[in-house]
Design a protein around this nucleic acid. Structure first.
Lengths: 180, 180
DNA sequence: ACCTGAACACCGTTCAAGT
DNA sequence: ACCTGAACACCGTTCAAGT
């Protein structure tokens, strides 16, 4: 039997860690525990090592993002859903990049590998909706699209965030029928 | 006036750090100091931070390697000098890679940037000697060659080191006249 | 002028004691 | 069954005291 406090602690730690790492990727484990209002032991029972916590934060983020697809498709056109979803993805990529040096190369690679599949699957779902409705060209490739979005978060957000405009250009290229 | 012990300490620290980092990239600063037979304070006066020490170890290594070019060219054919020199470079690359996770991405980038210029210059010197003597084709490019050697240290050295053989293939491509 | 090494403020991680 | 938080063995770095 899992106690309710145990169930809650995990997500509280995850939330605290996400905030803390966004502010400073070098935030210590004890600082995360304190921020979550939890003893150090509890933190370590949930996430036995620092790397495990960092990884979990990102898996959580990816699950949140990929899980949002069906909701976006429910009351929007596929192209608009794809646009909103991708902007969200770019935000997450920027947060990850903000961690920077706090992540070891090995950890960074582990994240990329565990993340790639689900993200491509989510894009595929969005693409399929558009292809079925005839708004997205049938030969559009999810892998290519993810590659292109990689260029979006590299685009500095100063003085204005160019990413939305760049995304619009990419989306224009995906349309089944060229814009008038 | 620089005391003789002060002059010696720097190179003793550098030597100890090179050995220690080769064995374990996570070797602590105090361990390096102890290994060098030096107080922690002396270590820190010479290298004010961990990253500074790691960087200095590599600069030292690069200077040693690039400095060996003229000696190699003195009593050998340019192609043979290039072959021996490149094998030495591959060894150094393998040592650097062995550090792995102990290096932050930023530090790793700093090393690459500070290293690229001198290494390309050394290759250019070796190439020029061969081009002048007619043994290396005139359109051979130092940057391309460095890029190719990057593939050599990635070649695992089990069960036998394939790098020398791969290098021979590359060198064959550089010859002014094809092999009979 | 330079060196040593104890000491400082931290770190990640563990585990006895509580509820 | 789960939690807390003091404690442990370390870390990078500093600095008073020595020579």
């Amino acid at each position: 039997m899992v106690r309710s406090d145990a169930r809650e602690n995990r997500s509280r730690i995850l939330a605290a860690a996400r905030e803390a790492f966004t502010e400073d990727g070098a935030t210590s484990m004890n600082q995360v525990a304190q921020r979550a209002g939890v003893g150090a032991g509890t933190l370590y029972r949930n996430f036995p090592t620092r790397e495990a916590l960092v990884l979990a934060v990102y898996q959580d983020e990816v699950e949140r993002i990929t899980g949002a697809v069906s909701g976006l498709l429910a009351d929007r056109s596929p192209l608009e859903a794809l646009r909103l979803w991708t902007l969200d993805l770019v935000e997450a990529m920027r947060r990850k990049h903000g961690l920077g040096d706090a992540l070891s190369p090995t950890a960074h690679q582990a994240i990329t590998e565990q993340t790639y599949g689900p993200v491509v699957a989510a894009i595929t779902d969005l693409f399929d909706a558009g292809k079925k409705g005839g708004s997205i060209r049938p030969d559009a490739d999810a892998g290519d699209f993810l590659q292109l979005t990689g260029a979006l978060w590299r685009a500095a957000s100063t003085p204005v965030d160019r990413a939305p405009h760049m995304l619009d250009l990419i989306l224009d290229g995906l349309r089944a029928t060229p814009r008038s």
